[in-house]
């Protein structure tokens, strides 16, 4: 993918632009991702703070022990889309597509974004889900997320009584 050369410096591309500063993100499975400092700090507050705490990026390795390699790869891919576009339209579309195709992955990416404090991307992803839920019934949400209804019959009745107005 052409987008990766910008975000994830690999092989020659990094040598061709030696002035680019990079740091290493380590996924939970030990896989390492070399990322452009500007690109990642543009997205992640946590890493931005980390760099400022460490006083620089020299040889910085950031272990992301709760993010698996596939999730991190997907997240970085989406960051690329976000960094390349001024508006959120393109990346929103990508997140939507991901939600429809691989919901599990999307939820993991969402959690990873939350973890590294990629605030604007996280907000955007939440909004995609919120928009999805907006038009869904309770049963549809349960089915969509594969959630079991863990209320007792009594509790359901009680909730229904409390919320009666909402279902008029």
């Amino acid at each position: 993918m052409s987008t990766e050369s910008k975000e994830i410096l690999v092989g020659e591309s990094s040598q061709a632009k030696p002035e680019k500063k990079t740091i290493v993100l380590m996924a939970s499975d030990g896989d390492e991702f070399v990322v452009d400092v500007d690109d990642i700090t543009n997205q992640s507050e946590m890493i931005r703070n980390l760099i400022s705490d460490m006083g620089g990026t020299d040889g910085l390795q950031v272990p992301l022990l709760n993010v698996t390699a596939p999730v991190l790869a997907k997240l970085l891919e989406l960051f690329n889309v976000s960094n390349k576009n001024d508006d959120d339209e393109e990346v929103t579309q990508k997140v939507k597509e991901l939600m429809e195709a691989e919901l599990n992955m999307m939820i993991d990416v969402l959690g990873a974004a939350n973890y590294i404090e990629a605030t604007s991307f996280f907000d955007l992803s939440c909004k995609v889900l919120a928009d999805k839920f907006k038009g869904m019934s309770v049963e549809e949400v349960r089915e969509f997320l594969n959630i079991e209804c863990d209320f007792t019959e009594e509790e359901l009745q009680q909730i229904h009584a409390e919320n009666a107005w909402a279902f008029d």
């Binding site: 690999v10 290493v24 896989d31 990873a112």
Partner: peptide, 21 residues
Amino acid sequence: VPAKKAIFDNIKLEHLKRRTT
């Protein structure tokens, strides 16, 4: 970097099974 490249390519090809984190 070369090591990263190899790992990254593997990831792109191989769809590891999901782990909820």
